[in-house]
């Protein structure tokens, strides 16, 4: 099946949407713009998770670890080294990625649930270390449970553009993976890892690469969010619910697809924005119910289910 992603119509549509997104801040301000930036962030985060979990099938329960590392790197560079945001952002990505290599190589040898638990342990250990290290080592670096206050950042427009750029980059990488040799190796790992290895796929290298790419972007999102909210604590930026949100959004949208994170990410961010502040518990219950419905009745996610319906229609 040859899919024509780069058809003339799609390209026109793409530039039209791009133009709208770029000029939107001229017309839209305040809450709505903030909301859009938030959607971009969640789509981007979800896409990061999708790169490792959706394509290779390695369910990462510790993604927030890299988000948190990115947040702290930028917070520390901006406050302690007085570095500007953009270079800090790049450092956040690089440092997150350089954590991902030594963490990924041993954990990606584990299969199934074991990988999930090991990554969860990594993220929780990071949180605890950041929380406790100052007290134990008698230093003043991470700020313990009080966290770090960053310099006040520019307005929502700035974060709108940064989040969009990051999201755009992750989506571009995903699209590239989808169509590249590298993407094939990831899918092969997902389907039958032993066979992949037998026919020459360096599975550990491919998995670690995917994991590192994912961590690189997660770190940059964490950095941007830190600067945006201007105040971070270990409990916020290493919160397991961030990972869980990525998992649910990916699942809701459809695993291992380019569109999945876009659909799942925007859908859930909007619902949560409407319900969260006012009816938090009800929202969480609803979320639980949505999860069960998706899992039981539409395991391919929204994108997969719609695609299935469309194909059926074409056949009949």
């Amino acid at each position: 099946m040859e899919k024509k992603i780069f058809s003339k119509r799609n390209i026109t549509l793409f530039f039209l949407i791009l133009a709208i997104i770029l000029i939107l801040p001229l017309f839209v301000h305040g809450y709505l713009l903030r909301m859009l930036a938030l959607i971009f962030m969640w789509i981007g985060l979800t896409a990061c998770w999708n790169i490792i979990a959706g394509y290779t099938g390695y369910i990462d329960f510790g993604s927030v670890g890299y988000f948190g590392i990115g947040s702290y790197v930028t917070a520390i560079l901006m406050t302690k080294a007085k570095m500007a945001f953009l270079p800090s952002l790049v450092f956040s990505g690089i440092i997150s990625a350089s954590f991902a290599i030594p963490i990924g190589i041993p954990t990606l040898r584990l299969r199934g649930a074991y990988f999930g638990i090991a990554t969860l342990a990594f993220a929780e250990a990071m949180k605890q270390v950041v929380l406790e290290l100052d007290r134990v080592a008698h230093i003043n670096f991470f700020g313990g449970s009080h966290g770090i206050t960053l310099p006040i950042g520019p307005g929502n427009e700035f974060f709108y553009y940064v989040m969009f750029t990051l999201m755009f980059m992750v989506m571009a990488v995903t699209l590239w993976i989808e169509r590249s040799r590298f993407g094939y190796s990831l899918k092969a790992i997902h389907e039958a890892e032993n066979t992949a290895e037998l026919v020459g796929v360096n599975t550990l290298f491919a998995k670690t690469t995917a994991y590192t790419i994912s961590a690189f972007f997660l770190g940059m999102f964490g950095a941007t969010e830190a600067y945006w909210v201007t105040y971070i604590t270990p409990n916020d930026v290493f919160n397991i619910h961030v990972t869980i949100q990525m998992v649910i959004m990916t699942l809701l949208g459809g695993m291992g697809t380019v569109m999945g994170p876009i659909v799942g990410g925007s859908f859930l961010t909007i619902i949560s924005e409407i319900l969260w502040a006012r009816f938090i518990y009800t929202y969480m219950i609803l979320l639980g119910i949505i999860i069960l419905i998706v899992i039981i009745f539409m395991p391919k996610g929204i994108v997969g289910t719609i695609r299935g319906l469309v194909i059926k229609k074409k056949v009949t």
Partner: peptide, 25 residues
């Protein structure tokens, strides 16, 4: 037998060429 189930027959064999022999896509 452990094929890459959701890939087509063609894609399955391509994996061998791409990664076993190092060919381009």
């Amino acid at each position: 037998v452990q094929p890459f189930t959701s890939m087509t027959v063609l894609e399955n064999v391509m994996i061998g060429g791409m990664f076993g022999k190092g060919l381009t896509l």
